[in-house]
Simulated assay, not measured.
Amino acid sequence: MPCGEYFTSYESRMGLFRWRIQRIALVAALPIPFLLPFVLGGGTTSLLTQMYIIAVAVLGLNVILGYAGEIVLAQGAFMAIGAYTTSRMLTTGAGLVPSLIVAGLMASLVAVLFGLPSFRVKGFYVAISTLALQFISEWFFTNDRAEFIHGGTQQTLPTEIGLVGDIAPVGGGQSVYFLALVAMLVFVMLSLNLSRSGIGRTFRAVHENDLAAAVLGINVFKNKLFAFAIGGFMIGVSGGLFGFEIGFISPDFFTLSLTLEHYVMLLFGGLGRVWGALLGVGVVDLLNDFLRDVFSAVASDATALIPVVFGVIIIVVLAVEPKGVLAALGQVKEYLRKWPYAY
């Protein structure tokens, strides 16, 4: 506890920003991302927009895997469902926000359906059921006979659309940037408050020991499905934003490799930690872009080594600090707080 600051109630002890320095840092740092598009180039703004969108998807994965402990291998499928649903909804003239909400609900519904096996099995077996969804998704969105449902394997999304109907049209780099930023901030606050609520603590109890949680009276199956629903909604919204941002969707964007990439981000930052998920997205995405430029300059086929580099990074991180880089940074902070008085 910082010197001179004391808790006088449980509300202050459980507050989202408990220390004065945290509140000062929030006030000082919050305007920065809103000012970045005015000082950065279009390429950097587009990169940040994609990072915000990916962050929403990784936060959804964090709810399912980090909070509830359910292994999901259908991240690409959930994003594909969100992207194609958004594309179909935009053709109705509903607007972007209603389309994203419907996309999130559709992905949430599918996540719950494929989470039903968690009633009888857990762990690796649940992962296999979600892996089956990934294969079904890739088959479905490439099947021309199902075009009357998904609208076509490859689709072009409108470059400008109203937020609700024709009201407040958005399109172009800066408007999509701010939309993705607001969406990320909303889901960050949702994830942070979820982890501090009774629902979040129930998820963690199920994660740690579902048998002990059941003995304590927790409905394990219901809470697992609830985690699938929340995480699926967030991932579906991310998929819709991703499709609208790039203006084009194809099943090739939502393969199993996308799931593995998001796992790298989450494990790197720290499983079950909101700030760790954001840290992992930022570092891995920037490092991926940097390595792509470096390897492309060396040789045209050298970019194939990028997954090898990330594999080595994950092995090193898990060997040094299994809880992720954020946990390691927390240990450094605690050490500096006590230094030079070790007691």
Rank of each mutant, 00 (worst) to 15 (best):
G4R: 13
Y6F: 12
T8F: 15
E11K: 10
E11F: 06
G15W: 09
G15T: 06
W19L: 08
R23C: 06
I24V: 09
L26S: 03
L26R: 02
A29D: 04
L30Y: 13
L30G: 08
P33H: 04
L35Q: 11
P37N: 12
G41V: 06
T44V: 14
M51P: 07
Y52L: 15
I54A: 11
A55M: 13
V58Y: 03
N62P: 01
L65S: 13
L65M: 14
I71C: 11
Y84W: 13
S87M: 03
M89V: 05
L90R: 02
T91V: 10
T91C: 01
T92H: 07
V97C: 04
L100A: 06
V102A: 05
A103T: 03
V110S: 01
F114K: 11
G115E: 05
L116D: 06
R120T: 01
G123W: 07
T130F: 02
Q134E: 10
I136M: 13
I136H: 04
S137W: 02
E138V: 15
W139H: 11
T142S: 14
D144V: 12
R145M: 10
H150L: 03
H150G: 02
Q154D: 13
L157T: 05
G162M: 06
L163V: 07
L163M: 09
G165I: 04
G165K: 02
I167T: 14
G173I: 07
L181S: 04
M189C: 12
N193G: 12
L194P: 11
S195V: 06
S195K: 05
G200F: 06
R201W: 03
F203C: 04
F203D: 02
R204C: 09
A205R: 01
L211Q: 13
L211Y: 06
A213T: 15
V215A: 15
V215F: 09
F221I: 10
K222T: 08
N223Y: 11
N223W: 11
G232H: 00
F233L: 07
G239K: 03
G240F: 00
F244L: 10
E245G: 04
G247S: 08
F248G: 07
L256D: 05
L260T: 12
G272L: 09
V274Y: 01
V274P: 11
W275N: 12
L278T: 01
V284Y: 00
L286E: 04
L287N: 11
N288P: 03
F290A: 15
D293M: 10
S296T: 14
S296F: 08
A302H: 04
T303M: 09
A304Y: 08
G311W: 07
I314K: 13
I314T: 09
I315F: 08
P322D: 07
V325G: 00
Q331Y: 08
V332Y: 08
K333Q: 14
Y341V: 06
